[in-house]
Amino acid sequence: MESTGLVLVSLALGLAVGAGFMTLLHVAERHGRRAAEVVNPAVPDGIDQVLDALETAGAVLDPSNNVVKASQAAVSMGLVWNRQLVHPELLELAQRVRRTGEPVSENLVLSRGPFGDASMRVRVRLARLGTRYVLLLAEDRTEAFRLDEVRRDFVANISHELKTPIAAVGLLAEALEQAADEPVQVRRFASRLTTESGRLTRLTQEIIELSRLQAQDALTEPELLNVDTIVASAVDLSRVVADAAKITIAVGKKSGALVNGDERLLVMAVHNLVANAVNYSPEGARVGVGVRRNDGVVEITVTDQGVGIQEADLERIFERFFRVDQARSRHTGGTGLGLSIVKHVVQIHGGDIRVWSQPGSGSTFTIRLPEAPHPAPAAIGDTP
């Protein structure tokens, strides 16, 4: 009996020890899982797909501010590099979210990448994601801000450009009234009034034209056009001015090139280039206009022997109201919109415009347009 009791006691102790050991194992396993959860950087289910579907940049930060998941946009914008946020401003916002538990939204100006000098304007929003993570969303609004600045500059420039001819018209009208009994003065003031009125008319027309072009992303009803005919029409518009300045306009041989487009717009674009070449060339100079076909591209080239353009100005010459020579532009009646109009016309035709220039050696402007395939000869009725 006594030995049986000892056996039972030993068995009970063994069971108790075994149960305690299993309990310890269970607790250790639970702590191990928790520790693994703390160390494991995996984001909650579904976040990967959400970030991949977003058009804006997105990233998920762990408690140590390591980036455990980032969209491709976040990397390409330069917000994330080497699994870290590049900008300390974003880290400060993440800390604020953890501290307060409230989402934050900010507009920031950040560098584009860890080594970039270019800046970007970004709208960011950060919020908690579960108990451990912070979600960062960022929208690049640089282009929107740039367009707003362009619009503001455009309005300011229009106001400035209109102010001069309007003031001149008013002064000349007043001078005419005071010189009513002096025929010579009346003729002189009337001539100047006509000049300023014409300049005001041109400026207004080009502002309207440029506004229309900027609102037009593509051609609505393109037609099959003969490029040689377009060039001939554009050159004819500048013949009188060129002859008066004893400037020769030499047109190259016919190319037979065809493009799809709007004839009025293309004639206007080429004419603007030819008119500029004439206006900025010295008396007796030569302006060359040529067309060539080059591997599916039609190139319309206008070359002058004028004063040329400084390298620093080459990148700005297609900006609205930008003038290389302010005084000469005023003298020739230039509005500063001609090249901007040319650029927009070419763009909506699916092409581009290039310029080469050297001070003292003249300039060459080249319009490049996609060549249209040649149909049967009967379909091109007016092709010379």
Rank of each mutant, 00 (worst) to 15 (best):
S119K: 15
Y280M: 08
S255I: 02
G32A: 12
R121V: 10
R98V: 07
R33K: 00
V150L: 15
D148I: 01
N66I: 01
L225M: 06
D140E: 03
I367N: 00
D52I: 03
E89L: 08
M120T: 03
S111R: 13
E196V: 08
P63H: 11
R152N: 09
R212E: 13
Y280R: 10
T366A: 02
A28C: 09
L193R: 01
V251A: 08
I207K: 02
H87P: 05
G20K: 00
A277C: 02
I208Q: 15
L108E: 01
R328Q: 11
E102T: 11
S119E: 15
L265G: 07
I341S: 08
A190C: 00
I309H: 09
R202A: 15
D153T: 10
E206C: 04
T366Q: 07
R202T: 12
R320H: 08
G333M: 02
I309F: 13
A234K: 04
E182F: 12
F115C: 09
S105Y: 02
V7E: 08
L11K: 05
L90T: 07
G5W: 14
I353G: 12
L266W: 11
M1S: 15
Q49D: 12
V355G: 10
M77T: 03
A57E: 04
Q347V: 11
V7F: 10
I249K: 07
S159I: 12
N294Q: 13
V241F: 12
V287L: 04
L176I: 04
E143H: 06
F145V: 05
I158A: 11
I230Y: 12
V345Y: 03
E89D: 03
A36F: 14
S281H: 04
A285Q: 06
D325R: 14
T23D: 13
P282Q: 11
V240I: 14
L193V: 05
G290K: 09
G351A: 06
V287P: 01
R146F: 08
E371L: 01
R125C: 10
V342E: 07
E182N: 15
N82V: 05
L136I: 07
D153F: 00
I47W: 10
V302Q: 06
F365P: 01
T56F: 10
L90G: 08
V169Y: 13
I309A: 08
L147R: 11
D228C: 10
H344N: 14
L147M: 10
R323Q: 11
Q214E: 15
A144T: 02
A42Y: 10
L237T: 12
Q185E: 09
L237K: 09
K343V: 00
L135R: 04
F145R: 00
V345W: 00
R132Y: 06
V122Q: 02
K246F: 15
V134Q: 00
L266S: 07
N294T: 05
G288P: 06
R202V: 09
V240P: 05
V39L: 14
H26T: 10
T4D: 11
E102F: 13
V289C: 15
A218F: 14
H344E: 15
I166D: 00
M120H: 01
L25A: 13
L369N: 07
F21G: 08
L203R: 03
T204V: 06
L176D: 09
E206Y: 03
S233R: 14
G18L: 14
R98E: 13
D148F: 04
A245I: 04
Q178C: 05
R368V: 04
F321V: 06
A179P: 01
H331G: 03
R34Y: 06
S281F: 02
P165Q: 08
L137W: 08
S111V: 07
